[in-house]
């Protein structure tokens, strides 16, 4: 029985990761062929970095990832605080509106953004792609910050005001440090999503501005070059590293949260009648 269980798990992961493993291995293959191994080389990586087209795409990918995640994080912080302080019913409505873009197929988001940009007579290019990335990043940022706000003692802000802090000071010195873990997680998540987006970028860019995903797609249509393997490997590794960081951060938060819940349970044992009193 145990053997079966282990085999089952092994098979799942084999199917999931075998293709990526093959891709990584063949990015170091001497031969152009994808069928046989002819020795280790780094030449595809070398050629990759010589390719002007790819380097320009890398530049735009990183620039858009940094800008879109930073802007989305800023907007996300403000939006989360607004949503957090809403009354229950409107809050539910806004949260659901926030979920829809996450569940919406990328192709629908991509095409609708393209249609919108064209309707507004905007030239498709860097700006439109950046706007598109900011748009699809915001919901994820909100979803990583909101739980932090909910965990926070609701009187912290008032306590800061009570001690003489202006609303701006209270936000900077008390609220922001409290929600910081959520803000950073949201930023990293947004960065990762922007880095590997293809579909939405494909529909919202133009005039020579491309990102890596689009370049890979274009190259693949013209015939597979091992350079693609090298490029994909690099993208996979960087996204993997970011995801590991995000996960470590989230699991670091958890024990802390658990401890806090424990404590509040312990406290509530002594207070039969301390429910929120208006």
């Amino acid at each position: 029985m145990r053997f079966l269980k282990k085999t089952y798990v092994f098979l799942i992961f084999a199917f999931l990761y075998a293709p990526i493993l093959v891709l990584i291995v063949f990015s170091f293959n001497e031969s152009k062929s994808r069928a046989n191994w002819e020795g280790f080389t780094l030449k595809w990586y070398y050629e990759l970095f010589k390719d002007r087209h790819i380097m320009s795409a890398l530049y735009y990918t990183l620039l858009i990832a940094v800008l879109s995640s930073a802007i989305a994080t800023l907007i996300g912080i403000i939006a989360s605080i607004g949503i957090f302080h809403m009354k229950k019913v409107p809050q539910g409505v806004v949260l659901n509106l926030n979920y829809i873009p996450i569940l919406n197929p990328d192709i629908v988001t991509g095409i609708s953004l393209m249609v919108l940009f064209i309707f507004m007579k905007m030239n498709l290019g860097f700006v439109t792609m950046l706007l598109a990335h900011i748009t699809f990043n915001i919901p994820y940022v909100i979803l990583s910050i909101l739980p932090k706000l909910k965990q926070m003692n609701k009187h912290l802000y008032e306590a800061a005001l009570d001690l003489g802090a202006t609303p701006a000071e209270a936000f900077r010195k008390v609220i922001l440090p409290e929600i910081m873990p959520g803000v950073i997680t949201g930023f990293l998540l947004a960065f990762t999503l922007s880095l590997d987006d293809f579909v939405i970028s494909f529909f919202t860019t133009g005039s020579g501005v491309t990102n890596l995903s689009i370049v890979i797609f274009g190259m693949a249509r013209r015939g597979i070059s091992p350079k693609i393997n090298a490029l994909s490997t690099l993208m996979f590794v960087s996204v993997l590293i970011l995801l590991i960081i995000v996960n470590i951060r989230m699991s670091k938060d958890n024990p802390e949260r658990r401890a806090r819940i424990e404590r509040s349970k312990e406290n509530s044992r002594y207070l039969p009648d301390i429910g929120h009193d208006i």
Binding site: N153, H155, L156, E158, A159, A160, L161, D162, L163, G164, A165, T166, P167, A170, V174, P177, E178, N267, I274
Partner: peptide
Amino acid sequence: LPAYKRKVNTVFQKYALFPH
């Protein structure tokens, strides 16, 4: 007069200490 300008201070129900 906003809270931060009043000459009163509060001890909150669940302390509301700044955890960080």
